[in-house]
Structure formats: C-alpha cells, structure tokens
Design a protein around this nucleic acid. Structure first.
Lengths: 219, 219
DNA sequence: GTTTGTGAATTCCTTCACAGCT
DNA sequence: AGCTGTGAAGGAATTCACAAAC
C-alpha cells in the first residue's frame, strides 16, 4: 500500500479520518487545476484557486494540509505537481471500470457521455432487465441480461456501478450490484437507497438541485 | 475586510435565516414523502423518515422546525400535509419555466428527460450557438439562435437556465443568462462558474461524484 | 514582499435529552 | 404510552492570524 497519507497522530487507536466534505472538494481542485494548466499557468496561489472556486484561500490550504505540503511559501503551488498529487490521492492515476444498469433513454445517454472516458472511467458492461435489449450495442459495449451481472462484474473487475433504472427498481438493482462486489454506486434514480456502510453511494438528481433553488427564487 | 460587523443580526421575527444545508435537504424529504404516499402510508414518524434517508430523526425534526410545526406529538406527520407544506415552502406549488442552452448530445438528452416535467419544471426555450441547429425541434420546443436569448427569456418568464454547453463556453453562456434576468442556473458543464451573489448555481457533474468515491475505493 | 501551513478562535451544524402535547 | 419540538450541549468545519519559508 502506497504511503499516500502523510498524517501522523499514531497515538489514537482510530485513524484520523479526513472529513468527507474535504474529499468531496478534492475533485473540484483537480478540475480547476486542469483549467489553469490549459491556460498555460504553472504556478497558482490559494488566493487564485479560491477566487475561481468561490471559496476562501484558507479553506483550500487547510484541505490540502490533510494530505501533505504541496506549496512553496511566497510562491504558491506548482499546477502540474499539485494536480498529479491530488489525482494520486483520489486514486485517479488508474482507469476505473464501471458497469451501467438500465439501458432505457437515460441509460443510453449516460453511457454515451464522453466525460467518463475523458477522465479514465470506462464503462465495460451494460445490463437491462428487458431481455429484448440484450445484444444491443451501446457505445463500446453490448447490453447483457441481468442474470449475467454477477459473473460479468467479477470477471471484468468492475468496482463501480452506475444505476439508470426507474426509481422503483433502484434498490433491487443496487442490492445486486453490492452482492456482486461493487463498492461505489452512482445513482441516477430519484430515490435514496439503502446500502452497507462500506459501499459509497452518490446520487445525481437534477430535479433535487432545481427544487432547492426555487426556495430562493420565490422571493 | 475591516468591515467586520458582528452585530448584523436581522432582528426581524419573520425571517429566521434558514441554513442552506437545510434547504438542500428539503427536496429529499419531499421525494421520500411521495414514496411513502405511494405506498399508502398516511402518517410517518421522523424515525421512519430518518431510516429511509439514513439520517437521524433529530435532524429531520430540527430541519422542519425552521419552518413550522407540522407534526402531532405521539403520532408523527401526516404524509400528504407535510409534503404539501414542504412543496409550498420550496415554491414547488407552481410550474417553473426554464431555458436550456447547448443543444448537442448532452443538451438533447437533458431536454428529453421526463423527470423535469413530472416535477413541474417546464423547458420553454432552447438555444444553441450553432445556427444550423436553429429550427430543430427538441421535445416541445424549437431551437433558437443565441441572439434571441435575452428577448425570449423575458417574454416567456424564464427564471431558470440549464447549461449544457462545453466547459469553455459555460461562463459566457451563464453571463448571458444572468444578463437576461435568470436567477437560478443548473450547470452541467464541468466548470465552476462565477456568478453574482443573488444568482444560485448548482452543478451536475457525475465525474466529480465518481472522483470522490475512488478515494475510498483505492483502499 | 509574498504566500504557505497550521494551531487557535470562531462559526456552523448535529445530536442530545426532555418538557409537553396527543 | 408515543413522538414532536426545541433549548442546550457537543462536535465539525471554517476562518483567522501569524510564524516560517522563499
């Protein structure tokens, strides 16, 4: 196991855990660093990062300090170096395999989204409960029936499940993915699923996002 | 920064400043209440809501207490009543008009997603910078050129913008939407935009969600 | 001079625990 | 008895502010 964690504190029996909210922000830093790199910048300050991300420089520095010391006083952070370090910390230095379940309109759109491949997430299998869809080609993969999910997930080293089924099917599908060994689920269904504590679930629901904004719109 | 006013407490009894995290959770409550209603339940406890949403009952009760007293001691909450109240609080008792900008593959998929209409968000206009797409029919609307954005947004009472353009175009498009009077933006571009404080922006980025989960996967 | 990294201070959020209502 | 609503307590996250490094 690589020594990705520079944190000390060996006295506590429990590992000093990085707050989840910090982990959620790291990809944002990676994204903005790519942008700065594309603009030809090779050094950036926490001030500049904070301006772009609408957050305080102190928060960025504090977040980074959970993982190490990546900057130079009086100068800032090397864009390429910080980006590489954060990618390594997040486990983005390798390609991750994902399986998508639900090949209706939404599933086909998600499977065709080029943003995944661009960031080294590869959809290596697709499933649908409708046997009529089996054999259909979507992107780089061929749709398989649900009964092949367990074996395929294991055979293809799939660690991530993407769920694009109707809300009423989501729990059952997530159960099957978890049973097959998946430890991370990206859930597009408008439903809050149950999952074991060692399985990470993130929801993508544009309707929830809209519904929280209307609160501020209605004067 | 010497403008540190620690006594700016708005003494107004009618505006108890609700934390944004609370507002972000309200749509979740609405969603789970619909689910319970569909199952035929007409009363729920904070315990039951908490179990479904994986949060503590106390948090749910505290959140609701920002807006009123919706439950009955010893009994719980009337599902229909609480749902109606939360929808009203969120401004979901009316239909909201939205405009979508960027009619490429992603934009067409988003515009066709039935989840918006189902929750009374109506896409009433669509725009694209490519003049060749003008006139194309997508769902219920016809794609218009960008130079018609300002007038159309005003004419059709659009309060929400949905941005499905490439990252490099996102800031410019958001600027145009804001100039046209839009006060809420749902941003699908993998980019963190700048916007005035009175404009709400929420990002939808499945890649960010995946990137924060891999941190936990790489054991 | 500039900017980081970080303990300390502060602010914000969650959970507790129980009075009070049904 | 059962469950809400809510001050108070406790815990987390953010921001401050400054010594150290360049």
């Amino acid at each position: 196991m690589p020594a990705a964690d520079t944190h000390m504190n060996a006295a506590s029996p429990l590992t000093p855990e990085v707050p989840e909210v910090v982990v959620l922000r790291l990809p944002l830093y990676v994204r903005v660093l790519s942008q700065f790199a594309q603009q030809g910048m090779d050094v950036v300050s926490s001030e500049q990062l904070g301006e772009q991300l609408q957050m305080t420089p102190a928060q960025i520095r504090k977040d980074l300090s959970y993982f190490g010391r990546f900057g130079k006083q009086g100068r800032g952070y090397n864009v390429k170096h910080l980006s590489d370090e954060l990618r390594r910390i997040l486990g983005l230095d390798i390609t991750w395999n994902a399986a998508i379940v639900g090949m209706g309109r939404l599933g086909r759109a998600v499977a065709s989204y080029p943003g995944f491949e661009r960031e080294q997430f590869r959809i290596v299998a697709a499933f649908d409960a409708n046997p009529d869809l089996a054999g259909m080609r979507v992107g780089d993969v061929v749709v398989q029936p649900m009964n092949e999910l367990g074996a395929t997930v294991k055979a293809k080293n799939v660690r991530i499940g993407i769920v694009t089924v109707p809300a009423v099917m989501a729990q059952q599908v997530i159960n099957e993915l978890v049973a097959a060994g998946v430890k991370a689920v990206l859930n597009y269904a408008p439903y809050s699923p149950q999952a074991p504590a060692d399985v990470k679930v993130r929801g993508i629901d544009p309707v929830l996002a809209l519904q929280s904004m209307t609160y501020y719109l209605k004067r």
